[in-house]
Simulated assay, not measured.
Amino acid sequence: MRFRSTHPDTVLQPAPSVPDTMRAVVFDGPGDPEALHLAEIEVPTPVLSEVLVRVVAAGVNPIDAKTRAGRGLSGAISSWPVVLGLDVSGVVVRAPFDAHPFPVGTEVYGMATVPRTSGSYAEYVVVPTLSLARKPSSLSHVEAAGVPVAALTAWGIVVETALAHQGQRILVHAGSGGVGHFAVQFAAYFGAHVIATGSPRNLEWLRELGAAEVVDYTSTRFEEVVSDVDVVIDLIGNVSDDTGTRSLEVLRPGGLLIEVPTGAWPGFREAAAERGIRSTDYKTIPDGGALATITRLLESGAVRVYVEHVFELDDAAAAHTEIERGHTRGKIVLSVSDD
């Protein structure tokens, strides 16, 4: 007789056969996108609270490209080759125990722990229980794979750090990107007056996502038309046209600058303090509980994910080339296996 799990909608399935090896995209040292190549490697073994997930789709994030190039998370790499990929959507094939919250056969999505373990650019990945949630039934695996890192980052910034609320004025730079398009939606959902910068092709779309004001950064300097902002969510930094420094001009005294890209503006804390502005950086927390809350917003239609490009697993190098161009609307995803 099959064991019924503690989740009312799940009946445990027999554990499927898992091969000893799998296809994965690896790289053997820092380099250009062409450093990524397909290989046959061992299927990872879950320990303690980890589950083994058969990957259907894997999200591609800027941190992946930075790590591949020798920045990002590369300082924590202890051995080669490395499999990248934090975002995963797939199906549990091994769980720690029968009554586990995500038993065998459960469709899940969440975040892997690259480079502590191998990532989701592979047919199988191990993921900690606390970094997972049940996949939204309204989303395909490709759509779901575009959610975890970007949405959890935006949630942590907007809801947990900025404490978005009615009447608050929040400026989001790069509002049409992976993190940005979630940040705009979350801030608007919680009642904030959202101002978003973007390119001409994305301005109307940003309005549809909930931005009350949009600024075309190609023709207008935002500090000339925006002022008295409570929070700036800076997803660019000073790598392009001193966006971070210019953001200090639009913040009210005592306002908050949230500087997200790692290393994009090393002196932001001192610069903000000189102007009487609070500041902080931010790192994504792989919180399955928060992801479950985001799931409910996705299921209700209050929030949506946009995937602009889908590449096959063996075309990961092209996916990295695309994300490094820096103009993706929403997300880039790798299709790894059949649903």
Rank of each mutant, 00 (worst) to 15 (best):
R2N: 10
T10N: 09
A15F: 07
P16N: 05
A24R: 08
V25K: 00
D28A: 09
L36T: 00
L38P: 04
A39L: 13
E40W: 13
E42G: 11
T45W: 11
V47M: 10
V47K: 13
L48H: 15
V53W: 14
R54V: 01
R54N: 08
A58H: 06
G59F: 10
I63E: 05
R68L: 15
G70V: 08
R71K: 14
R71D: 15
S78N: 13
W80S: 03
V82A: 05
V83T: 04
V91M: 10
A99Y: 14
H100F: 07
H100S: 04
P115H: 05
R116S: 09
S118Y: 08
G119L: 05
Y121P: 05
E123S: 03
V126L: 11
P136C: 13
S137G: 15
S138G: 14
H141W: 11
V142D: 06
A144W: 08
A151F: 03
L152D: 01
W155K: 00
V158A: 04
E160Q: 11
A162N: 01
H165V: 03
V172P: 02
S176L: 15
G178H: 03
G180S: 11
H181N: 08
Q185M: 13
A187R: 10
A187M: 10
A192S: 12
H193A: 08
V194Y: 07
P200M: 12
L203E: 00
A211M: 14
V214C: 08
V215T: 00
D216A: 05
T218F: 13
S219P: 08
T220K: 08
S227Y: 12
D228A: 12
I236F: 10
I236E: 03
I236A: 03
L248F: 13
E249K: 15
P253N: 04
G254R: 05
G254E: 02
E259D: 14
G263E: 03
A264E: 03
P266M: 12
F268A: 04
A271F: 14
G276T: 03
R278G: 02
K283D: 11
K283W: 15
K283C: 10
I285G: 00
G288L: 12
T293L: 14
I294A: 07
T295D: 11
R296H: 06
V303Q: 01
V305E: 02
V307D: 02
V310T: 00
F311E: 02
L313Y: 00
D315T: 02
H320D: 05
T321L: 13
T321P: 05
E322T: 09
I323K: 06
T328Q: 13
R329F: 12
K331M: 07
V333E: 01
S335T: 00
